[in-house]
């Protein structure tokens, strides 16, 4: 049983809207035990263990969240079916990377039971590492402000969450942090590498 009971439209709308609504919707999806077990069973049946299953479910949730927020999920499949496909794709991709040319690579996604092809932008570990290093240079407070802003929290909510005296102060802090971030990126010696995708 779903608890609370959201329709797919409500889940997508809540995640797209961001803020607290997004978190409630993500938690509702996360709490689907059947789905988690299906992902775990898939991973286990393809050379993984229980921890791999949980990791894949988490990574799938992250992709689902981003794809909904960026409008890449077009509602052509049920949200949970889409998430299952993402998890399978991610796991098969990981196996391929690990095995290179082993038997796993001989199982293309298209031969899997369902035919959903989630739009997944896979980032190289190197690029991810660089982006994370840039984020860390920013400082924790600025990270929090920009993350909340990116998740469409209002300036009122940001002020309340992070203890600013007013929404206007939060807005000014966000601006300063954003400019700092861009300066950090600009001054990084690897920025050219990041810009040339």
């Amino acid at each position: 049983m779903k608890k609370p009971d959201f329709t797919d439209e409500q889940l997508v709308a809540a995640i797209s809207a961001g803020g607290q609504a997004r978190e409630i919707a993500l938690k509702a999806i996360y709490d689907d035990g059947d789905l988690k077990r299906m992902v775990a069973a898939f991973v286990r049946n393809h050379q993984g263990n229980a921890t791999d299953g949980q990791d894949m479910f988490h990574e799938g949730m992250i992709v689902l969240d981003r794809n909904i927020r960026e409008g890449k999920f077009r509602g052509e499949a049920p949200v949970k079916g889409y998430l299952y496909s993402i998890c399978r794709f991610l796991w098969m991709n990981q196996l391929r990377k690990q095995a290179h040319t082993s038997s796993v690579a001989e199982v293309p996604i298209a031969q899997e039971p369902d035919h959903l092809t989630p739009e997944i932008a896979l980032m190289t570990e190197e690029r991810k590492g660089l982006l994370n290093r840039l984020l860390k240079e920013l400082g924790e407070r600025c990270q929090q402000i920009l993350e909340l802003w990116k998740l469409s929290y209002s300036m009122e909510e940001i002020a309340e969450t992070l203890g600013f005296s007013s929404p206007d102060m939060a807005r000014k802090a966000k601006y300063r942090c954003h400019v700092s971030l861009l300066e950090i990126i600009r001054n990084n010696p690897h920025v050219e590498q990041l810009l040339s995708r």
Binding site: L26, D65, K128, L131, L135, E147, L151
Partner: peptide, 19 residues
């Protein structure tokens, strides 16, 4: 590029919440 950097933080935060 800045948006991508911030997205990394958003992802890390969701990962922590799921843990």
């Amino acid at each position: 590029l800045g948006q991508e950097v911030i997205e990394q933080g958003v992802e890390a935060d969701l990962r922590r919440k799921m843990q």
